[in-house]
Design a protein around this nucleic acid. Sequence first.
DNA 1: TATTTTTGTAATTGATTAATCACTAAATTT
DNA 2: AAATTTAGTGATTAATCAATTACAAAAATA
Lengths: 172, 172
Amino acid sequence: MAKSTKENRKEEILEAGLEVFAEKGYYNATTAQVAEKAAISQPYVFRFFKTKEELFIAALDRAFERILQTFKNVEAKPDQLVGKMIEAYEELSESHPNEIAVQVIGISVTEKPIQDIAKKGLSQIRSYTLERFKTAGIKDSEREASTFLARGMLCNISYFLDLPELIDEKRK
Amino acid sequence: MAKSTKENRKEEILEAGLEVFAEKGYYNATTAQVAEKAAISQPYVFRFFKTKEELFIAALDRAFERILQTFKNVEAKPDQLVGKMIEAYEELSESHPNEIAVQVIGISVTEKPIQDIAKKGLSQIRSYTLERFKTAGIKDSEREASTFLARGMLCNISYFLDLPELIDEKRK
DNA sequence: TATTTTTGTAATTGATTAATCACTAAATTT
DNA sequence: AAATTTAGTGATTAATCAATTACAAAAATA
């Protein structure tokens, strides 16, 4: 059995945070709920994250890091690039649904430090995608990249709101 | 000078609510701020809206109603439909920025009655657009409609986060 | 084994804020 | 002009929760 080091305690709390934030949103999530899910006391959360905001930022940052990394790991010939990236996104949204939800939530949180992370995340995904599309010689890559991002965002929203019709163009 | 009837008092509060919600988000907006903006006392807000939630719902509902109506008012020949609808959307986002912001905010509010209004709003816009596209004989109308919605949503987000690069493909 | 550090909790606080209560003044109606 | 309704406010309450404090037990170290 794995020893409970300081680092994996922090990891447990972050994971618990992701779950609670994904379900309740930022403002309705309480640090007591996070603690309960991590099976520790409420004050102990603050030994690892100075504030609730800091915990949310860690969660949001992880969500954006993972999706970016997922795209970076995609290997494909130019004409299959877009398809492969969509595939990668779909796998991610099944394997890490809480991180998708947290991305949606992060967008309308008004606390400046959180909003800044959301902006950075979206901005990075957009520029990485654009560069990748350009390199692959995709025509009208600016437009394709922003459409790609837009459709991805709408998928997230569709998932978060449980409104499948938004994107369900009868899966081929 | 216009008499202050009961109805236009309610309207003033709704308008104040739209402003405050757009700026602060749902959870960080206080009924005291709404009252101040409407130049009345905080308790008086509750004479017109039973709860803060009810006020937000009224605001969100208006936002979705207006955008739907805006699309319904678009007249265009089939080959100009999409362009005209984009134009209409752009005008709306200049004339009613707070309603755009409230749409973004509404999406990640977790209170069920609010989420239901957000779902209904998005759903209606999507189906109206789809029917309109179909009628205009647009090819692959399912995909075009969801792309249209997705790009609109990304515009809203881009506006709300003040992140113009997300959509700015050097306006032609 | 005495000491210090680490891991953890129970109890409390301090601030915030939606919503209610108790009331007054002004219109309106009888 | 008395009675009632409408428009409005100041003061308070009741609940919630992030964050702190003040400890205790266990582990590690000297």
